[in-house]
Computed example of a mutant assay.
Amino acid sequence: MKLKLLVFAGLAEQLGGSAIDVDIAADKLTTAQLKSHLIEQFPQAAPALAQSYIAVNQTYAEEETPISERDEVAIIPPVSGGEPQPMPETGHELAEITMDPIAVEQVTAKVLHPNHGASIAFIGTTRELTHGQRTTLLEYEAYTPMALKTMQQIIGEIGDRYPGTLCAMTHRLGSVPVGEISVVIAVSSPHRDAAYDASRYAIERLKQIVPIWKKEIWEDGSEWKGHQLGPWNPTAANGGAQP
C-alpha cells in the first residue's frame, strides 16, 4: 500500500518534510499499524510519533480505523496547548483562519445579537517573557482544512452546551510578533454567566483538538510547543475541556 502522509510542525522537521511517501507491504492497514510502521521507519522521531494521532480524511481516527490509498492521511503531533444543535444564523463565517492581523471588533461583530445582553472577546497575544525566557516571535502553522472543521465543531458544541449562545473564533497563522494577536474568540449570550463559561470552554477546547502548532523563537534558539496540559487525547469526550 502506497500512502502520501501530511506532516506538521516539529514532526515534519524530524521526518524531513511536510509530506512523506510510505510504501507498506500490506493490503489492509489500520492507523495503529501505520503508526507502528512509522516508528520503525523513523526511530529518531519515535517519541514524537508515539504522542501523535492520525487523522483520516480530516478526522481524528481510532486505533483500529482502516486506511486506504484513497484517504487523506495526516500525522498530528500534540497541538499547541497552553498552561449538533445548529447555531443561530449570523451571515458570517464563524470559524476563520488568516495570515493577516486580526481585528477584534470584526470578530466580535459576528456574534452581536439584539437579544443578547452579554458579549466577551478573549484575545490571545504573543507575550515576551515565559519563565524568564525572552520570546522574540511566534510562528504558527495549521492543518488548515481540519483546523476549520474542528473550530466549527467547537462552535457547535457551545451551541449544544449553552443554548442561544453565539461563538466566533479567528486564528492567525505565520509570524506573530510580541504584543500582536494570535487568536480571538468572541462569545455572546442573553446572560453573562453563559458567556463567561462558553468563552473558557472555547479556548480550552481549541487548545485541545484544533491542529494548530506554534514555534517559539527566542534570542538564542527556537522550539515547537505542543500540548502542555497533561496527556493529550483529542478523541476523548470534549477533550477534557472545562464544563
Rank of each mutant, 00 (worst) to 15 (best):
V7F: 02
V184A: 11
G240C: 07
E13M: 02
Q44P: 00
K35R: 13
P66F: 09
F42I: 07
R192M: 07
A168P: 05
S189V: 05
Q41K: 14
I185K: 04
G164S: 09
H227V: 08
S222M: 03
V176P: 01
E141R: 04
E180Q: 04
T170S: 12
L137S: 00
M87N: 12
G117S: 14
P231M: 06
D160A: 13
D21W: 00
P47R: 12
D220R: 13
A9P: 02
A202Y: 09
I203S: 06
G132Y: 10
M146N: 11
V22H: 09
D193K: 15
K214H: 05
N233L: 01
A19T: 14
G221T: 14
L94C: 05
E180A: 03
I20W: 05
T31V: 15
G81F: 03
A168C: 03
G91K: 13
T59H: 09
Y140M: 04
I209Q: 00
K4W: 00
T125E: 15
A236Y: 08
G230S: 09
S52F: 10
E223W: 00
E40M: 05
V104M: 06
E219H: 11
Q208V: 03
K207S: 03
T144H: 04
P211M: 08
V178T: 12
I20Y: 07
A95P: 05
K207N: 10
E223V: 11
P211G: 04
